[in-house]
Design a binder for these strands. Structure first.
Lengths: 242, 242
DNA sequence: CGAGTATTTGATGCAGTTCAACGCTCGTGG
DNA sequence: CCACGAGCGTTGAACTGCATCAAATACTCG
């Protein structure tokens, strides 16, 4: 019924570390199905103990935390290949919510099989930990950005990050990429108000550095954008796919 | 020579998940020695590929990132029992620097043995991943705090977090705990200026909620502090010790 | 006792928030 | 087929929380 991992369209991408046939066979058993959700669907709720874990196959989404008064912090944007549910898998409770921004296809795993993965597939367990470490690393960089940089630099940092992520999974066409979020989402990810985010995006547009409209981000001057955002443009590291 | 893990003073604490004798034996082999450093010593540098990993045995330190212009974001404060070098262990490069704030004793491991840990001790590999997930969780909460809350709430959140961490490792005496950092360190962890941090701490003092002077933090009203900081006071979860 | 470091306090300015209003697009129902 | 409302982007104006500047106090240490 469900596509076996041998036929996974994502695995072909050169960004993802190749798997041995043993690993692919294991993942096929680990996988319990596929899930297609509409835009706007909540996938995981903060505090919930989800019995399912996912890998995003297509579409985009976002991770966020909600505060008591309704304010929202977007932690990260979800791209194809991203693993969803790490905290549920390990600690049994999610620290944030996840929702689909566009329609998405997800690969589904059983949480209860995670221990089996550690016991019988150390390579895959290592990969899982690697993903956790990368996410930790990203959040550290995001915290430094939100904590220390002024608005123009925050936006530039975020746009470079998004563009590099998109490049890694071949979602870019030249200097463009789909960016199907609202300005409010980006604002909430950077600790800025919607109004100020809008005005700062206008500045980047005027400066001929980057423009974002109708769900498409166009980078006119990546070097300059990276300079403003104080971020390196390094070749993407290959990363494991769960 | 070096203390075997069977005699580890930290393991006795009830906060740490008990280990089987197999696990203790493994850790003793994993351990290559102990390191004592003075206050102010850098332990790991951002970008470095450290061949050594550590577990803090005593003393306190901090993790931080430095930006081009010299600004600094403190990511977290290090308590006894904390594992240091996760990113070096997995990705081969640290995303942040670590330094000792007080004199510290550290348990030393060889980075090259990590793969062996995954292959032969899945329980310990799981524990390592658990620690990574907890750190990811913490950074998400910190990001939400810095991104969304005003100064008084940020400070309250941070003080509650610190106090609960200290309670977990039995470093509190009643409502007091040692907090051997500078106001600048706390300011850098919350994305606030030193001056504003100082003035906001004064407000908490006046309100009879918390006071911090001479390296000692005294919580006068934990409930109120937690209320202001919008944070739950839950019993500490037992966690693995590496 | 002078130099260096940390805390404290007052004064001033601005980056970013909040409030408000308008335009555009799209879906829905009369 | 048009009217209406909802959601999103855009822009102007006013306000404010926090940064920055400045300076005094206290403490430690060689």
């Amino acid at each position: 019924m469900t596509t076996p991992c041998t036929a996974c369209p994502l695995r072909k991408s050169s960004v993802f570390t190749p798997m041995t046939s043993d690993e692919v066979a294991f993942m096929t058993r680990f996988k319990t199905g596929e899930l297609a959700v509409d835009a706007g669907t909540p996938i995981m709720m903060e505090g919930a103990n989800s019995p399912q874990l996912f890998t995003a196959l297509s579409g985009m989404g976002l991770r966020y935390k909600t505060l008591q008064d309704g304010r929202r912090q977007v932690l990260n944007f979800i791209f194809p290949g991203d693993f969803i549910g790490m905290q549920a898998a390990l600690m049994g409770e999610m620290g944030h919510s996840v929702e689909a921004t566009t329609a998405m296809k997800l690969c589904v795993f059983r949480r209860s099989d995670v221990w089996n993965l550690f016991k019988t597939m150390p390579e895959r367990a290592f990969d899982l930990t690697w993903l956790a470490a990368v996410e930790e690393n990203f959040l550290g960089e995001a915290l430094a950005t939100v904590g220390q940089k002024p608005a123009l630099e925050r936006l530039s940092w975020a746009l470079v990050r998004l563009f590099k992520r998109a490049q890694a999974v071949a979602m870019t066409k030249g200097q463009s990429m789909p960016l199907p979020f609202r300005q409010q989402d980006l604002a909430d990810s950077l600790g800025l108000s919607l109004v100020h985010t809008n005005k700062t995006l206008a500045r980047l547009r005027e400066r001929q550095v980057a423009q974002w409209s109708d769900g498409v981000l166009r980078i006119s001057n990546l070097t300059e954008l990276a300079r403003i955002g104080d971020i390196d443009i390094e070749a993407p590291v290959t990363r494991p796919l769960m």
